[in-house]
Amino acid sequence: MFEATLQILCWLFLAGLLAGFIDAIAGGGGMVTIPAMLLAGIPPLQALGTNKLQSLFGSGSASWSYARHGHVDLKQQGPMALCAAAGAVLGALLATLIPADWLKLVLPFLLIAIAIYFGLKPNLGSVDRHRRMSEHAFAFGFVPVIGFYDGMFGPGTGSFLMLGFVALAGYGLLKATAHTKFLNFGSNVGAFAVFLLTGSVLWKVGLVMGAGQFIGAHLGSRFAMKQGARIIKPLLVTVSIALAIRLLADPAHPLRIWLGL
């Protein structure tokens, strides 16, 4: 039975703070929070459920901060966030029925591909470019799929949303970051609702980490708005590669099992 001592809660608060800062700029906050909770002795299912609770504070704080400075219209993007939430509900429900080994297998390589795309694309900046997918197709096609993935598995959701907003919707990096956090908030709400109904949420841990996430996300979003593409692009590439390495380093990764490593 997990016991949340004061020392553990302090460390988890700091993990939430760091994750919120990173996630508000480039996504990948789960790379910090999930391992931190597992190392603290929290069972995997409760770690996933609690992670969705504390992530609400980070994505909500970042969304509000970006909206206050005019980088995203929350009311206008509300339907798209609902699509992300609906996809996440379905993903979280199916997570209990369908093994996620195939996702674990391909995800690191997808993240490396995303890092290469952003790293080698020379003209990415704050200026919007040509849209390659219609607004309706993006909102009702691409967004629910990523929301589904977030509810079912999760790591790299921010990177996938960033890639979609930049490559398909033609957004500049700062605008893409702002919209990514709001859609991530929507998918967090959907997945959290499912985990809440299954009793997989540790409220004390989630609220303490959520406080850290709220502060970190506020600082991270302000930092991103001040530095713009100059900091978003390299951090996005770094986070994507670091998350890929973290997943490949897991002894339970299917590729390592198949290779006998």
Score class of each variant (00 low, 15 high):
194 V>S: 08
57 F>T: 06
34 I>E: 01
171 Y>S: 07
203 W>L: 15
87 G>W: 04
235 L>G: 12
110 L>F: 15
112 I>D: 12
16 G>L: 12
217 A>F: 14
55 S>P: 10
53 L>S: 11
230 R>V: 11
230 R>T: 13
145 V>H: 02
234 P>G: 14
144 P>E: 06
120 L>N: 07
97 L>S: 09
37 M>F: 12
65 S>W: 02
81 A>K: 05
186 G>K: 07
44 P>V: 08
14 L>T: 05
11 W>S: 03
216 G>F: 08
216 G>N: 03
186 G>Y: 08
251 P>N: 09
135 E>P: 02
79 P>C: 06
204 K>E: 08
241 I>L: 15
257 I>G: 02
254 P>V: 13
16 G>H: 10
146 I>P: 00
205 V>G: 10
40 A>K: 02
216 G>S: 12
35 P>N: 06
108 P>G: 13
131 R>P: 01
222 R>I: 01
91 G>Y: 01
247 L>V: 13
231 I>V: 15
236 L>C: 10
127 V>K: 09
196 L>C: 07
32 V>D: 01
58 G>P: 05
205 V>C: 11
121 K>Y: 14
243 L>F: 14
161 L>C: 07
132 R>W: 04
145 V>T: 03
90 L>F: 12
5 T>L: 08
140 F>Q: 00
81 A>L: 02
74 L>I: 10
114 I>Q: 11
100 A>V: 14
141 G>N: 08
139 A>E: 01
122 P>G: 03
248 L>A: 11
160 F>P: 02
81 A>N: 02
41 G>L: 06
161 L>G: 05
117 Y>L: 12
104 K>Q: 15
88 A>E: 06
33 T>G: 14
4 A>S: 09
192 F>Q: 04
131 R>V: 03
181 K>H: 09
96 T>A: 15
215 I>A: 11
188 N>M: 09
66 Y>F: 15
91 G>H: 00
39 L>E: 02
211 A>V: 11
35 P>E: 11
200 S>C: 10
118 F>L: 11
73 D>E: 05
258 W>T: 03
8 I>P: 00
206 G>A: 09
248 L>R: 07
125 G>N: 06
229 A>R: 08
154 G>T: 09
26 A>P: 03
116 I>H: 04
157 T>V: 13
157 T>A: 08
121 K>E: 14
162 M>N: 13
111 L>M: 06
113 A>H: 08
88 A>R: 06
212 G>A: 08
238 T>P: 02
60 G>D: 10
83 C>G: 09
253 H>K: 09
249 A>T: 02
87 G>P: 00
222 R>P: 03
27 G>E: 07
225 M>G: 02
14 L>K: 00
76 Q>R: 15
68 R>L: 13
182 F>K: 01
192 F>L: 14
29 G>K: 13
217 A>L: 12
53 L>N: 10
18 L>A: 15
237 V>K: 13
261 L>Q: 10
17 L>R: 04
